[in-house]
């Protein structure tokens, strides 16, 4: 059956921190407990991760002081509530009378009741009592794309679907770790939230949802949660070989997902990092202008996990003209790649 993207919700949550502000905060944190020699080496690495001008939004400004499991989970719960309310405010301006399903996405924490149930309470007047409520957890940066893939395949009795994405990545930071991958995560990610109204009916400003193709690679441990000082933290199985492995996986994925070169399309690519963005652009033969929305997003928001692609998609759909194709490509833990496209009505 046909599905339409009726709205993409892209609230900005948290406060902006520049690269310099983040570096200063990390330096102050490390000075409290790490010896000078180790600290210098780690800060040199962090300086590389934070080169140039980039911002991220932080919902938990105290994340470098987390010192217990409870600190992390309480921060996640607060951030999730803020995010859901921010999405609800956008739904109030543009949403259906009732959603028949809520799919909630997060790869940065867990809670019970789950996020879909919490959403049903936050937007109580818009969620059907008989709605399907489902949490889609731990899918990483492809989480929102997987939710779209799921929504596209739900039965016809489910007319209006709400996808909410809650990614307070700062809650996964381990301020007591010297592991490179932990700090690579801290420096790469930002906190974000987003949502999508998917419907079986078209409407003003809608886009017809086309194919969504997913591909699962051979590197299940490439990106993972690791056991941190007192909580989960972002980890890479092989930090030195990470870029090489990701590029190899992406190379194979692009040969499998049916990405064909076509002029006049708008493209959004998950901003995993500048290296991957530019490498992928070369592979897919995308010019700089086409890549610019994704680069601009990364500079303003960093990598908000699966919330990022929806923010980029919102911008693309706003600028797309009638009949124009909009494509997106996401990649992440698994190693999983999702390619989707839609056409502005």
């Amino acid at each position: 059956m046909k599905r339409y993207i009726r709205a993409v919700y892209a609230p900005v949550v948290g406060v902006p921190w520049s690269n310099q502000e983040l570096f200063n905060a990390i330096q102050a944190s490390l000075e409290r407990w790490l010896g000078q020699e180790e600290r210098k080496a780690l800060l040199d690495l962090i300086r590389l991760f934070l080169i140039g001008s980039r911002t991220r939004y932080v919902q938990c400004p105290e994340f470098l002081k987390f010192n217990s499991f409870a600190h992390h989970t309480e921060a996640f719960e607060r951030a999730a509530d803020d995010s859901l309310r921010a999405i609800a405010a956008e739904i109030a301006r543009n949403g259906p009378a009732q959603f028949d399903a809520v799919i909630a996405v997060s790869s940065t924490g867990l809670s019970m009741p789950g996020l879909a149930d919490q959403t049903a309470n936050v937007v109580r007047d818009r969620v059907n009592r008989h709605s399907l409520l489902l949490d889609l957890a731990n899918a990483g940066c492809t989480g929102s794309s997987r939710a779209l893939q799921l929504g596209a395949n739900l039965g016809s009795e489910i007319r209006d679907i709400l996808i909410v994405v809650v990614e307070p990545t700062s809650t996964l930071a381990d301020p007591w770790s010297v592991e490179r991958s932990n700090w690579q995560g801290v420096c790469t990610f930002g906190d974000g939230a987003a949502g999508v109204w998917l419907s079986s009916e078209p409407g003003n400003g809608a886009a017809h949802l086309g194919k969504i193709v997913s591909w699962h690679g051979n590197e299940p441990d490439l990106i993972q949660w690791e056991k941190g000082s007192n909580y989960y933290r972002f980890g890479l199985a092989d930090p030195d070989g990470f870029e090489r492995s990701v590029r190899r996986e992406i190379l194979e994925a692009t040969a499998q997902i049916g990405w064909d070169k076509k002029s006049g399309v708008l493209c959004g690519i998950h901003p995993a990092g500048i290296m991957l963005l530019l490498s992928l652009a070369k592979k897919l033969d995308l010019d700089r202008a086409t890549l610019e929305p994704s680069i601009r997003h990364f500079r303003s928001f960093s990598n908000m996990s699966s919330a990022s692609i929806l923010h980029i998609l919102r911008e693309l759909l706003t600028t797309a003209h009638s009949g124009q194709e909009v494509r997106w490509l996401t990649m992440g833990t698994g190693f999983h790649v999702v390619y989707g496209l839609c056409t502005k009505l």
Partner: peptide, 16 residues
């Protein structure tokens, strides 16, 4: 190198 190349985009373009 760090005095010349100050942006992550430039750094990646340099490597590529």
């Amino acid at each position: 190198a760090g005095d010349v190349i100050r942006q992550s985009l430039e750094l990646v373009e340099f490597v590529l």
